[in-house]
């Protein structure tokens, strides 16, 4: 039974999503702050501090200001963080400390619906954060409309991908401290080496190949194409990568959580 595509999912997973949305709404002012302020911090630090050192960036035959280059990366990192931290730390707290899933399992909800609802919610958080951040960035004229609007649906897909792998780790870790491991070994290297703060072409060949394995690389590729308005057909590959990544880690996450919770 483990490892196969979950069958026990009805639209009831939305009830789990709704629960998280209700909690989010109560503290929306606090939740809205990071995506609104973070880009401002980066823009000040990099725009004023670093841009004078870096100057312009050559990217796909174009000369871009450093801020224009990293704006889509900031969006991508926000999408990754919001989804991954929601289904790792936050879901773990709900599962382990608050016993929220135990309470849900005594209702008509199935475990599959609970996990799906959590992942859907984490993707929604990515979407909200990306939309807020995009609004701020737009004031600085760093993005290209209307193509940039594709970042919104992209944030749902990217969010789902990172939410699925976050939930997979939640099914795996023995305690909450262990999340440091995937963050140190997976999230942080991605943050730095996915074509976020410098073009991948600056890396040695082998590292470029390695970077193609990382989901954030593909998310950044797509986000940058949308904000610059430079779509290329080879980006279908990145889109496919994110879809396949999600389709692999979603059932894996459900299987791990089933093994963890159902005894």
């Amino acid at each position: 039974m483990n490892g196969v595509w979950p069958k026990q999912i009805s639209r009831r997973f939305l009830r789990v999503w709704q629960r998280n949305f209700s909690v989010y709404r109560m503290t929306w002012k606090i939740n809205f702050l990071p995506p609104l302020l973070e880009p401002l911090l980066y823009l000040v630090a990099f725009g004023i501090g670093l841009q004078s050192l870096v100057g312009a960036v050559r990217f796909q035959g174009q000369t871009l200001s450093y801020m224009t280059f990293i704006a889509p990366a900031l969006l991508s990192v926000t999408i990754m963080y919001n989804a991954f931290f929601e289904t790792s730390y936050t879901s773990f707290v709900r599962m382990y400390y608050q016993k929220t899933f135990d309470a849900m399992l005594a209702t008509p909800l199935t475990l599959e619906e609970i996990i799906t609802g959590e992942i859907a919610w984490a993707a929604t958080r990515s979407l909200i954060a990306a939309a807020l951040m995009l609004t701020v960035i737009s004031f600085f004229g760093l993005v290209h409309y209307p193509q940039t609007l594709w970042v919104i649906p992209l944030s749902l897909l990217g969010g789902a991908a990172f939410a699925a792998i976050g939930m997979f780790f939640t099914g795996l870790v023995p305690n909450i401290e262990t999340f440091n491991l995937p963050i140190f070994l997976f999230i942080t290297p991605m943050f730095l080496f996915s074509g976020t703060f410098f073009p991948l072409e600056n890396l040695p060949g082998w590292a470029q190949v390695l970077a193609q394995i990382l989901p954030l690389t593909h998310l950044v590729n797509l986000a940058r194409a949308f904000t610059l308005g430079l779509w290329q057909n080879r980006l279908w590959g990145s889109l496919l990568y994110l879809v396949v990544f999600t389709l692999i880690f979603f059932p894996l996450a459900v299987a791990r959580m089933r093994r963890r919770l159902i005894r």
Binding site: R19, V23, Q98, A103, M104, A106, P108
Partner: peptide, 29 residues
Amino acid sequence: HIGVCQQEDNLDPDLSVLQNLLVFARYFD
């Protein structure tokens, strides 16, 4: 059609008393 009162306290600490009930009612549609 079952009501369960589990041994461990698993009320939702993120929600108020009334919201605990309203959110739980949604799980039953």
